[in-house]
Design a protein around this nucleic acid. Structure first.
Lengths: 202, 202
DNA sequence: CCTTGTCCCGACCGATCGTTCGGTTACTCT
DNA sequence: AGAGTAACCGAACGATCGGTCGGGACAAGG
């Protein structure tokens, strides 16, 4: 995660692919990916348009780096021990909680991921991986339903979609608070409670 | 609503602003508004690019017509008698149901509305009217909370956002079924039940 | 000193953008 | 038949698109 491989943490007065990505993703989320030109990015970054190509191959690589980061965070949640072991209902609740946490921690990147349309190859790849993640969670919900831990009067596929709809909507309004660690936890609690108090048996 | 003012319903073998709008909105939703060129629209409509300008003033007018139609449908739901009279909790539940119904009935137009980013004047106007609608519903929820008909342990503003997040997510996956009138009603029921069984007192 | 490599720049590329224009087809009304 | 007009077209407009190119400024290492 260091910017260079020098013995001491060097000063940062120039762009790296990562720092440039942060600026680009911010603009992408404001204007939309297709609505953002390299000229917009150069203005926001404070360097010329051609200088951007010194750090990254082009516009689409910025998108690919961004959605990759989001997807890596989401899939990592599925690999955690508490998402792998235990009763299905517990695992799905844990994954729900971690998904919300990842969404808040990597907000700009997940926001961009949730808005890709599929116009380019990179976007179609992102959509495919997103569907893969959704399917993994849907399978968890299915297992919980088989255990009898979910209400029987709701369709599992529909419930999965509504659950993700609720969670993913956070990118539309959630904005991180400087010192709001406690608030974040409370927000996660509320989301999980609101989702499962309408899902859980009894 | 007739295509012309002739006594009998004339044959339709040419475009009107409305029929062209239907084609355009479909492409907008596939590629995104910014990702759609007039060339894309002309291919989808089967007429030349310049011919489009015979029917509408330009690309942005198509967007304005589309989001207007969506907003008119949503606001109309707020003006219905059952949304105006009665206990607040009943009114908010009715508005929720009607919102889902309008969303399904005007799916392409509402889909487009929910994806505008605010790059142009038309998009900013759409965002403003959307916020106005959300505020009207939030006020209803607030009134229901004051009546003691909503759980006291969830923040009203947060609950409103999660409710809309769940409802609006329908545009991401719901596709109308040819003869699925009954299925539609059942879907609306499920959405409303899942939302309020996590909200209602008791 | 000179080289080397990083970081950045203005100028420019072909392609595509939304839009305009002059003109042609085809149907309607008298 | 002739006039009027709605619907459409190909060609072209200036602007902007993502991306390329040759070179300058500057610091590090010899």
């Amino acid at each position: 995660m260091t910017t260079t491989d020098r013995p001491t943490t060097a000063k940062r007065d120039t762009y790296t692919p990562e720092t440039l990505l942060a600026v680009a993703v911010s603009v992408f989320n404001e204007r939309g990916y297709d609505g953002t030109s390299m000229e917009h990015l150069s203005k926001a970054a404070g360097i010329s348009k051609s200088s951007i190509y010194h750090h990254v191959a082009g516009k689409e690589e910025l998108l690919r780096r961004a959605v990759s980061r989001a997807l890596d965070g989401l899939f990592a949640a599925l690999e955690e021990p508490r998402a792998q072991r235990g009763r299905a209902i517990e695992r799905v609740e844990y994954v729900t909680r971690r998904t919300v946490e990842v969404l808040m921690a990597e907000l700009p990147y997940v926001t961009l991921l949730l808005r890709v349309r599929g116009n380019t190859q990179t976007e179609r790849w992102a959509l495919e991986r997103r569907r893969e993640f959704d399917q993994r969670v849907a399978d968890l919900l299915k297992a919980a339903a088989a255990d009898g831990d979910l209400r029987a009067d709701v369709d599992i596929r529909l419930a999965t979609r509504l659950l993700f709809g609720m969670i993913n909507s956070l990118v539309e309004w959630y904005r991180p608070h400087p010192d709001g660690g406690a608030e974040q936890e409370q927000l996660v609690d509320t989301v999980v409670r609101m989702a499962f108090d309408g899902l859980r048996t009894g």
